[in-house]
Design a protein around this nucleic acid. Sequence first.
DNA 1: TCATCTATGTGAAAGCCTTCACAAAATAGG
DNA 2: CCTATTTTGTGAAGGCTTTCACATAGATGA
Lengths: 222, 222
Amino acid sequence: MDEYRETELKKRISESTIRRLSLYHRALETVEENGKETVSSKELAKMEKLTPAQVRKDLSFFGSFGTRGLGYPVTDLKVKIARILGIDRIWNIALVGVGNVGSALVSYKEFARQGFKIVKLFDNDQRKIGSNHKGIVVSDVKNIVSELSGSEIEMVVVCVPGSVAQFVVDDIVKAGLRAILNFAPINLKVPDNVFVRNENMAMELEYLSYALVNNHSKNRVK
Amino acid sequence: MDEYRETELKKRISESTIRRLSLYHRALETVEENGKETVSSKELAKMEKLTPAQVRKDLSFFGSFGTRGLGYPVTDLKVKIARILGIDRIWNIALVGVGNVGSALVSYKEFARQGFKIVKLFDNDQRKIGSNHKGIVVSDVKNIVSELSGSEIEMVVVCVPGSVAQFVVDDIVKAGLRAILNFAPINLKVPDNVFVRNENMAMELEYLSYALVNNHSKNRVK
DNA sequence: TCATCTATGTGAAAGCCTTCACAAAATAGG
DNA sequence: CCTATTTTGTGAAGGCTTTCACATAGATGA
Ligand SMILES: NC(=O)c1ccc[n+]([C@@H]2O[C@H](COP(=O)([O-])OP(=O)(O)OC[C@H]3O[C@@H](n4cnc5c(N)ncnc54)[C@H](O)[C@@H]3O)[C@@H](O)[C@H]2O)c1
Ligand SMILES: NC(=O)c1ccc[n+]([C@@H]2O[C@H](COP(=O)([O-])OP(=O)(O)OC[C@H]3O[C@@H](n4cnc5c(N)ncnc54)[C@H](O)[C@@H]3O)[C@@H](O)[C@H]2O)c1
């Protein structure tokens, strides 16, 4: 196998491997900025606090991208990982709940540079509906199903209070969307074919609390 | 073994188990609000999309908290998990970088309710230093080492740009602190006895991208 | 051209985590 | 008190992930 193709019969790739691909991609951007043309699994591993074997194994699921004795071609590998992750394109995103968190995300230019473009905002607060955030006019959430259905938008970021997040998500699912990034601290119920990722800061703080209290001595940044 | 004690000789508990304890704690708060006095592993599992066996196994690492034929006493179990996680107390927290993300976190009252109190803010922007955010005056980051050393603060949230995050973290480590929640998209280098947790929203969006492009059909909310 | 060196790609082993399956404990109802 | 029922707690099995270790391929330099 020389390169990864979606059409190939392939075994399921683990979540951890995919998450590490993101890390490799980020590391490769840094290496590229530094003007290096090749990079070894050892160097990549060091940058993201992993093992060289792990790097090689992860990449090997998708093809063989390196040259023995030399390493991996930086730009080439970056492009190939981008293709695997599906980030060699622009994703149009809607954001619901233009509050503290929502506003911070809308202002964040780096997402757009990475191909994640927030193109639509929704809220239910009359004072916010119609107002302009970074060039986007906030829409009324009551029209969310019709405005998302059949649109160019394929992902939604949910930044509403936990008490209403499930209702908002039900509408998103109704509109036929299948990818949700959720900031509300609840477990969303969605059909099996819909993907939800949760940002749960409280959980991370609680993990730190546990680590301090139990005086561990290895921190493994995932 | 009847109850978990820190002093006991115990085998290392996996990161996944600890993260799920946070989920159980959250679920128990909901169950408690609904006035139920006992809850089964089956019910807890359903609430957080896990299996009953997983719930029981996780809890069994710390003791036996349930009653056969009946389930777990809600309030009691909640309190015990809180003790295990070390969230049966107040943690004083400093936040560095009062920008978009930093401001959103400072305004978030829920953290304080959970015992995570942001009590100090740092920035390097002269226009922000001295200004007041939710009753906290922003300090100059150049004094961060002395202000954190020996203080009541034990955790730091880092919300500065990636280009300076490592410098800020070096100072935090110099001040003797050992727990960092990092929002900058870089891999922080810290000594082995310092705990870092990363919030990496780009990584979550990239995972959604991969999932959509590869048309998976199981989403497993961790 | 040849010898040496470096670093990949990958089966196999080891390690870790989850699920299974059931004995045991407790309830509930007569 | 006894039986049927429920649900825990947990060894063992199974499955998944990481690490090991080395044959292999290519680079490099003389
Ligand atoms: N702010 C933080 O630091 C933080 C941290 C962790 C988690 N969270 C979670 O993120 C979410 C947002 O937090 P926040 O601090 O930005 O809250 P916020 O109150 O500032 O913003 C919520 C926004 O959602 C809007 N909204 C409410 N109901 C809605 C509905 N039905 N449809 C559409 N919009 C609706 C509100 O008008 C508001 O603009 C919450 O679930 C919160 O628990 C926030
Ligand atoms: N805004 C988002 O939605 C978002 C999303 C993902 C990740 N992030 C990351 O979170 C971090 C903060 O993002 P943001 O959007 O809030 O940026 P921001 O520019 O709004 O805020 C950064 C703050 O840090 C301060 N700062 C800069 N250098 C400093 C230093 N040396 N010491 C102390 N303070 C310093 C700045 O004055 C500013 O107040 C960045 O690393 C960013 O990549 C942000």
